[in-house]
Design a protein around this nucleic acid. Sequence first.
DNA 1: TGAGGCATTCAAAGCGCTTTGAAGACGGCT
DNA 2: AGCCGTCTTCAAAGCGCTTTGAATGCCTCA
Lengths: 343, 343
Amino acid sequence: MNLKKLSEHLNLSQTTVSRALNGYPEVSEKTRERVQKAARELNYSPNARAKGLALGRAHAIGHVIPVSTQHEMVNPVFGDFIAGAGAAYSAAGYEMMLSLVDDQSQEQLYRDICARRNVDGIIVHGPTMDDPRIALLTELNMPFVVHGRASNIDIPYSWLDTNNSRAFRRATEFLLDLGHKRIALMNGLEFMDYAFRRREAYRGALETRDLSLDPELMCSKEMTESNGFLSATDMLRLDNPPTAFLTSSMITAIGVRRAIESAGLVMGRDVSIITHDDDLGYLKNGHDVPIFTATRSSVREAGIRAGELLLDLIRDPSAGPMHEIIEAELIIGTSTGPAPKDH
Amino acid sequence: MNLKKLSEHLNLSQTTVSRALNGYPEVSEKTRERVQKAARELNYSPNARAKGLALGRAHAIGHVIPVSTQHEMVNPVFGDFIAGAGAAYSAAGYEMMLSLVDDQSQEQLYRDICARRNVDGIIVHGPTMDDPRIALLTELNMPFVVHGRASNIDIPYSWLDTNNSRAFRRATEFLLDLGHKRIALMNGLEFMDYAFRRREAYRGALETRDLSLDPELMCSKEMTESNGFLSATDMLRLDNPPTAFLTSSMITAIGVRRAIESAGLVMGRDVSIITHDDDLGYLKNGHDVPIFTATRSSVREAGIRAGELLLDLIRDPSAGPMHEIIEAELIIGTSTGPAPKDH
DNA sequence: TGAGGCATTCAAAGCGCTTTGAAGACGGCT
DNA sequence: AGCCGTCTTCAAAGCGCTTTGAATGCCTCA
């Protein structure tokens, strides 16, 4: 069923039918109702490609997902993020288009996407510190919103970010206030901007208390359960092991907990953990009492807001670079306690 | 940059330019090279909507992701599945289109997607036992491949599935062989087809050994860490508690492990766990020695194969219903051991 | 009665591509 | 010279929609 057939069936011109369905005023109410009824009965829904061609808009948003080539891994927060963004899109009648890309072929893929014109805007995931995509998309004149920020980029662009600095500073201070002096940082990959900010916040908090950084207590790896376990196991074997861990994700924290327990120690008594918690649907941090003390901010909320910002930007590009920062809550769970005396 | 401008710039007709770029033989090699060079330099890439309109094909595959309304949760295997499928698509020059839908408005969404014609095929995720989408898409004449199967549907359709029955039967027998008699099943939601098959396999294995099912040892919930923890905690408090757990996902298993440990028991000695392992990138089951004894099958592989099947089906719909079954490996980890004597 | 105004409706152009059917250029053959 | 076949190129139609600019019918008012 297409517009032509529908209009023939109704003995009307395509113009009239199109206008009736799109709510234009210059069509009488009788005909509008007749048209709408027929459209419903015949299950007519305009061909999206043709509509897009005529309108010059795709009614779709692109998400480019970087897939780590080493580990073939998709960031697990991604599911929740797009669940949020998707809700914003469908409310506005937009589709979501996904492309996966390995770290190599980034630039060409973005160029192609823009040239092919089947998205009206792009969400940039996982920005690095001097992410080249920001200049590229600006040059290509494609509306975009970055989930995160790029510390070394100074051209204006729209972003939405969690306040990683404040969250990790608070988390570190929380441990320091409990008397911990040997605090390990299990960070994500530090060319990622959020991981860089987190490390700087950790460093800042320690230095303010005149504690120096110990490279043996810092690691920067992909945030998997295994990495959490392995790195924590190594650190716990040090002569002067950490009494607390600051981890970048719940998954890493689960690995660290496993390391603590298999070292015969008790979490929250012998060794503390504080983690960042993205509030993922399938990985809630406990129920009434949280398991892990955590800085929590919902990545699903971030998805919703990022989607909304981008849609606003598409409607009115002059609305200029938009910025939004999300504060994380500090949630007290059972994984933290005062630093043990005998260390 | 579009075809018209490009052809004017080259002093050629649009026809010739189009043919040159699409590899048709009736254009001379000189001109072809000239055209290709210009296209590269001017960064020309055909407008996808226009191409789709002209060709009657969208070059895109739709994925409809059911979002559980109660828990606003996206199945965590989803990220890995689409990473696989996406690889298959981009190899073939296809895009991936995502729609999220809550359980309610399923049918209308599918009808719309088909009517709007901006996908050439659909992957059906998470089929239930008598999933209505199969009849619907068949009627609408839209190529599709189901990830999983629908036990109560008897019309022919294409699917790709893990052999859940065999995997869970083997897993149950493995525990039985170790002497366990009180085996708990922590299943997913049992209106989902895979969960139903898993339960039936578990039941079959027990009945073969003349053991009766104990409803107190069976639960059917969303596969989250919390649910694993809560249900396992309850079961371990029974007068006659289970000595082994069979869980549906790594995440659930992690929750069960937490329950075991916080009950003061030791996993693999006091209580065994065997789980299904989707081999997710960020949640590897240990490194050299697996943590959990598990039935493993890579959901990423499933994504790749499902994508390939669907592309084949789109190329040649008469290639008829395609079926593919993936066997799971049984991986022996440290989470299982002989049933304790004193129980 | 005819001009003017308003409410409806329509034919046709255009969005950017592919593809059909036709035509131009060229060389070889009789 | 004239004809034919081959190689190369082209103009135009069509994909399904929106939108411009024009036309139609009807009513009102002078």
